[in-house]
Design a protein around this nucleic acid. Structure first.
Lengths: 142, 142
DNA sequence: CGCAACTGTAACTGATAATATTACAGTAAC
DNA sequence: GTTACTGTAATATTATCAGTTACAGTTGCG
């Protein structure tokens, strides 16, 4: 799985956890354990999808605008990791003079297409709000 | 997805397609579009799992011994690509002085664990035999 | 205004993982 | 004993990913 997906989910949960729903790229980066530039790149995509809004300039940062319960991991997945299940690598070759070798790409592709749908369906059942609840439950009963 | 998984599936389908169920590492490699050493490494795992047997020496190669209909992609996945869905990368840090940052790994891990099970369940529904049928159907009705 | 603190991007660098290559010992057929 | 294979490991080579740096654009505030 794409690590940008992880940064996005972690970032969203963090924002949802903040009472005012705000944090700067540096705060998020240190919480996620990566660098601010990477966070900004990911958050930029989330903004384009309407989950957060950004305030540039001094005192700026990111702020959650969507309801945590309404943001599913599937939508985050679609936004920045879609099709990451299928490998870059592809066996066979359509030009090949062999029934198996020449048709494998198509068939394999269909398999991964189905797998991707299955994965999305699963991610559809998990929301940012639910993840936050789980974390808060863990912290509440140490 | 692990590319060894692809090599394995492609190799198994190729063997199933052969009337005598045999092929050398070089034949498989050229069909899959990779090199023989890589194929041998993958086939070695498949042998240990009982799907194929190997004949060393001159005129040797690999031969399918299991029924193509009985080999599911899930079992191939478990054999050489298990857990490949979860990323090497992990956000957060349990030592961290933040409720979100310190618990994220656990929660994220649970998500990927579930996703992996979902994926396996899907792969359980696809067999080598079925893939071969699909390929043969494509070739039969051009 | 002018400075300080942010975001938005892109280019560059370094680290890490994936793949290919090479090599050679072991084994079986002829 | 020679030829044609597998098994396995070591070693390049290449591609991918993450970190870093840089700088223009934006906003808040003294």
């Amino acid at each position: 799985m794409n690590s940008e997906f992880i940064i996005a989910v972690h970032g969203l949960v963090l924002l949802a956890h903040r009472p005012d729903g705000m944090a700067s790229s540096e705060e998020i980066a240190s919480n996620v354990c990566t660098n601010p530039a990477r966070v900004r790149k990911v958050m930029s995509v989330l903004r384009k999808n309407g989950y957060i809004e950004t305030r540039e300039g001094s005192g700026g940062g990111y702020r959650l605008v969507a309801d945590p319960q309404s943001i599913t991991l599937a939508s985050v997945y679609r936004a920045l990791a879609a099709g990451s299940l299928a490998p870059g690598w592809c066996s066979g070759n359509p030009e090949m003079d062999c029934v198996v070798g020449s048709n494998m790409q198509d068939v394999m592709n269909a398999v991964f297409c189905g797998a991707d749908q299955q994965l999305e369906a699963y991610l559809e059942t998990i929301t940012i709000g639910r993840m936050l609840s789980q974390i808060e439950a863990k912290a509440g009963i140490p």
